[in-house]
């Protein structure tokens, strides 16, 4: 059964918790808790007793020919072990190189080398943490130079080489499609239908290109992509609305969740009809 939820953020935590009857799942940023005192980890456990929790990593930098830092993986392993989330996820990005933290989720060149590097890092993550993360496609304002593959080919190659499942960020996909002129619906259609496990929704703004900033409402195009994803994916989806600031009243976020549910239902109906 598909589920719809919100990213857990301290500023809106009480509002989320007070409306758990309309929220199926919450996504917690794992990195906020890597060095947290035990009382904060225990609090997360208590949260997980009220509502399903998934963890989302941002700093492992798995899509790289450089080896993922085992100490960071060990921190994730400890957190996963203590919080017992339903799953954890991380980005197909690199965040450091040559010992320098670049502080961004950066898109690596889309080549066979980075496919192999990502697959090796995902193997390492699986070994250290005990489970592989769902991997998330990222947004980028520049087409990574030195790429031999397009984004769809690259993502599919990583899924195939690593066995990891996909967290499909539909606003990232939409932003890249707008910025680089490809068809997002075709991207979704070519994904292996049994490998999409979760979806991110968010909003952005136009700055000459479409910027994925998580500060705006989910645009219509993304709901349309969600419907198409639901029509394509064979597994139940966990859909998370990400909002990182400029918070509207919670009723508006709940309304966006309701709209996501409607899109999921419409997509599932279309999938059923297509199979008849």
């Amino acid at each position: 059964m598909d589920r719809v939820g919100l990213g857990w953020r301290p500023e809106i935590a009480a509002e989320i918790f007070a409306r758990l009857d309309g929220i199926d799942v919450v996504e917690v940023i794992a990195d906020d808790y890597f060095e947290a005192p035990s009382r904060e980890i225990r609090a997360l456990r208590t949260l997980a007793a009220q509502v399903p929790v998934v963890l989302h990593g941002v700093s492992l930098g798995l899509a790289s020919t450089a080896r993922a830092d085992v100490r960071r993986l060990a921190r994730m392993a400890r957190l996963v072990d203590r919080v017992r989330p339903e799953f954890w996820s991380e980005h197909l990005a690199f965040v450091r190189g040559g010992g320098v933290e670049i502080g961004h989720l950066a898109a690596p060149p889309r080549t066979e080398s980075t496919v192999d590097g990502a697959a090796a890092n995902l193997d390492r993550a699986r070994a250290v943490v005990g489970s592989a993360p769902l991997v998330e496609n990222i947004a980028t304002l520049i087409d990574p130079p030195g790429s031999d593959l397009d984004e769809g080919e690259w993502v599919r190659a990583i899924l195939s080489a690593s066995g990891a499942d996909l967290l499909l960020d539909l606003h990232n996909l939409h932003a890249n499609a707008v910025n680089f002129g490809f068809d997002a619906r075709d991207f979704i259609r070519r994904l292996p239908e049994d490998r999409i496990g979760a979806v991110h929704l968010a909003g952005g703004k136009w700055i000459g290109r479409l910027l994925d900033d998580h500060l705006h409402d989910v645009p219509d195009e993304v709901y349309d992509l969600l419907e198409r994803t639901a029509a394509h994916a064979s597994r139940p989806l966990t859909v998370i609305l990400e909002r990182d600031g400029n918070y509207p009243p919670m009723e508006e976020l709940i309304a966006q969740l309701d709209r996501a549910r409607s899109a999921l239902r419409a997509g599932r109906r279309a999938r059923e009809l297509a199979r008849v």
Partner: peptide, 26 residues
């Protein structure tokens, strides 16, 4: 996060935080 101090980045961002899309979003 609206209570983060850093906010913004060289590759985008706005307001009180965010800005994921510049060099890769989540």
């Amino acid at each position: 996060s609206s209570c983060s101090s850093s906010g913004g980045s060289s590759c985008g961002g706005g307001g009180c935080g965010g800005g994921c899309g510049g060099c890769g979003g989540s």
